[in-house]
Design a binder for these strands. Structure first.
Lengths: 191, 191
DNA sequence: CCGTTTACCTATAGGGTATAGGTAAACGGG
DNA sequence: CCCGTTTACCTATACCCTATAGGTAAACGG
C-alpha cells in the first residue's frame, strides 16, 4: 500500500475549506468533502482540526481577518464620505467575490473566540469612519449598528438574489443608499 | 403491535417544524427530529412531505406568510413615519419572538416558489410605506432595498448577539436608526 | 541505525436522508 | 355488514457525514 504524505495542516485545511465554501456554499463545507479534495480519508483530518465545528470556526476567523484587512486597506488615508464609501465597497465586494467566506464570517462564535477575532477590528474601523461625522455617544454606537445593519443586510439580500427581480441595478441602489447614509449621518453630527 | 394513528399532515409537520426551529434553530429542523416529536419513524414523514428540502420550504413559506400578516396588521391605517415605525417594529418583533421562523423566512427559494410566496406582499407593503415619502422611480426601488437591508441586517445582527457587547440597549439604537431613515427618506422626497 | 513521533490508515458506531416494500386500520360501495 | 381499496404508519436497508479507537509505515533525530 503506497502511502504518499499529502502534507495536511490546519492552515491548508482552513484555506481549502474557504475555497470550498466559495464554490459550493458554507453549508457544504464538511470534513468528508474536504478529505475528498485532498484525496484522503475523513478520519485523517481529525489529526489537524478538532472536529467539524473547529474547522468552521477556523474558516470564520480566517474570513473575518481577510475582510478586515481589505477594509483597512480601503479606508487607509480616507475620511468622511470617501472613507464611508471605501469601507462599504470593500465590504460588499468581499461578499460578492467570496460568498462562502462571507457566510463563514457570520458563523456564530463563542464570546471568547469572538473577542479574540478580527471582529473587534471591524467595530474599531466602523468607529474610525464615524470620526468624520462628529457623533457623540450614544449616537456613535447607534450609528455603528445602523451601518453594520445596512452593510450586512445589503450583502445578505443581494447574495440571496433578492435584488434580481427588478431591472434596476443593485450597484445604483448601493450608491443611492450610501449617499443616503452620508446625509443622514452628517445631519446628526454635533460639531 | 398496537398502531395508533398520529394524524400527520403537511400542515401539522410545517407548524411543528416552525416551533422546533424557534426552539432549537432552523438548522436543527430535521425529519428525524420531527419524527421523534410525533413519536413516529422518520420514514413515515415521507408520505406527507417530499423530503427535507420540501419541509424547509414549507416552513419558509409559512413564516413569510405569518410575518406578512403581522406587518400588514401593523401598518393598517398608518402613514408616513408612523407606518415606517410600525412596519419596522412588526418585522423586528417577529424576528425576536420567532428566531427560527425568521431564519426560515430567509431560506433560499427557487424563483417560481418565491414569486408565489408572501415575499411579494413584503415588497408591496414596503412600497406602500414609501407612498408617504413621494419617491419617484428609481429612487423608490432604491429605498425599498435600503429599508429591506436595514430591517434584515438589524434583525440578523441582533439575533447573532452582535449588539450584546455594549451596554447601550438595542432598542435605543433601533429607534435612532428609524429616525435616521425617516429623515433621510423625507430629504429625498419629490413633492 | 534504531526508537519515537508523525501522518495517514482501517474499522466501527451513531445519526440524518431516502427508498422499497409490508401490514393493519379506516373507509366506502354494494 | 362485508370485503376490497386506500391510507397511515411500519421494518429493512443503503448511503453519507461525524467521530473515535487503534494500527502501520514513513520520517526524524540522537
Amino acid at each position: 500500500m503506497i502511502v504518499v504524505r499529502v502534507g495536511l495542516s490546519p492552515e491548508r485545511l482552513t484555506l481549502a475549506g474557504a475555497k470550498l465554501a466559495d464554490e459550493a456554499g458554507f453549508d457544504q463545507v464538511t470534513l468528508s468533502a474536504l478529505a475528498r479534495r485532498f484525496d484522503v480519508k475523513p478520519a485523517s483530518l481529525y489529526a489537524h482540526v478538532k472536529n467539524s465545528h473547529d474547522l468552521k470556526t477556523r474558516i470564520a476567523l480566517f474570513a473575518l481577518e481577510e475582510l478586515a484587512d481589505r477594509v483597512a486597506d480601503a479606508v487607509a488615508g480616507r475620511a468622511g464620505k470617501d472613507a464611508l464609501t471605501a469601507f462599504a465597497n470593500a465590504y460588499r465586494d468581499y461578499a460578492r467575490a467570496h460568498p462562502g467566506r462571507y457566510e463563514a464570517a457570520r458563523y456564530r462564535l463563542d464570546p471568547q473566540t469572538a473577542a479574540a477575532s478580527a471582529g473587534v477590528r471591524h467595530a474599531q474601523m466602523t468607529r474610525a469612519i464615524l470620526r468624520g461625522y462628529d457623533l457623540a455617544e450614544p449616537d456613535q454606537t447607534h450609528a455603528v449598528r445602523m451601518l453594520g445593519s445596512v452593510f450586512h443586510g445589503y450583502a445578505s439580500l443581494e447574495a440571496a438574489g433578492g435584488f434580481d427581480h427588478t431591472d434596476i441595478a443593485a450597484q445604483q441602489s448601493w450608491a443611492w443608499t450610501l449617499d443616503c447614509l452620508d446625509t443622514a449621518l452628517r445631519s446628526r453630527s454635533t460639531p
